[in-house]
């Protein structure tokens, strides 16, 4: 019942706002930016969700636990803690049809975009995942991200990919942006194709023993030359 009450309250607020909505353009959309980085040892997947007005208002309502109209840092933390677990099954990664064990790389992050008030705004939620790169990865293998995040929201989708260790990727996308949302159990598929698999890194992965650690490739640094990333337009 508590959940139901909260939903109804949120709906009331949002409904009231909608009736005088300034600009419905994209207000009920969530922009999904799916970024895949493939290296010899790991596939890193970052999903950036930009919530436009209506969905941001709903999430902000949820964040504002006390609720006094202002989202505090403690409320944000409390919002994020269960979020990671709740969303854990909503993103899947398949390589050549085989699901990889996707794990969180970091805690989710929220950027309220300088607006800590409830009500319509924009905010960005960033989710970090990773999985070991399968040794069976071959050229022409399809890498598919199944995205069931906020399935009831309309979606704008973009893809970016980046290959390390000699890996090259192309991107495809099989979602229809801006169209009627798919049924809740239907994923949006973001597809990448391996043109050239990464060259196996001779360094062994970090071992469970106390032997010296072999560092993984450094995190992507924006100071490096621009990556050969690809963003596939939505057809």
């Amino acid at each position: 019942m508590a959940c139901l009450i909260r939903l109804l309250l949120a709906g009331g607020v949002i409904g009231g706002w909608q009736s005088v909505a300034a600009h419905d353009l994209f207000t009920n959309y969530v922009q999904h930016c799916v970024q895949l980085t493939v290296g010899a040892r790991h596939l890193d997947l970052t999903v950036d969700l930009t919530f436009f007005e209506e969905w941001s208002a709903r999430e902000r309502q949820t964040m504002d636990a006390n609720p006094n109209g202002r989202i505090t840092r403690s409320e944000l933390e409390a919002y994020l803690k269960p979020l990671a677990a709740r969303l854990s099954g909503q993103v899947k990664l398949r390589v050549a049809g085989h699901e990889l064990p996707l794990a969180l790389l970091y805690d989710p992050e929220v950027d309220l975009m300088t607006n800590d008030q409830t009500g319509p705004g924009h905010h960005r939620l960033r989710l970090f995942y990773f999985a070991p790169t399968p040794t069976t990865l071959r050229a022409e293998d399809e890498i598919v991200v199944e995205d069931r995040l906020w399935p009831e929201a309309k979606l704008l989708g973009t893809l970016q990919s980046e290959g390390h260790d000699g890996c090259k990727l192309t991107t495809e996308i099989s979602i229809k942006a801006g169209r009627v949302p798919p049924p809740p159990d239907e994923a949006r598929w973001f597809k990448f194709r391996c043109v050239k698999p990464p060259v196996a890194n001779p360094a062994a992965p970090v071992a469970a023993t106390a032997r010296p650690l072999i560092p993984s490739p450094p995190p992507p640094s924006p100071s490096q030359p621009m990556p050969a990333s690809l963003t596939q337009p939505v057809p």
Binding site: Y106, P205, V206, S216, P219
Partner: peptide
């Protein structure tokens, strides 16, 4: 995760990749 992503400077630039590797290792474990 927090150290690897946000506070790696505490350990110096040379250890950054190592902290990142430990984060992954712990999460995979």
């Amino acid at each position: 995760g927090r150290v690897a992503r946000n506070h790696w400077y505490l350990f110096g630039t040379a250890k950054r990749t190592e902290m990142e590797a430990l984060n992954r290792e712990l999460r995979e474990a």
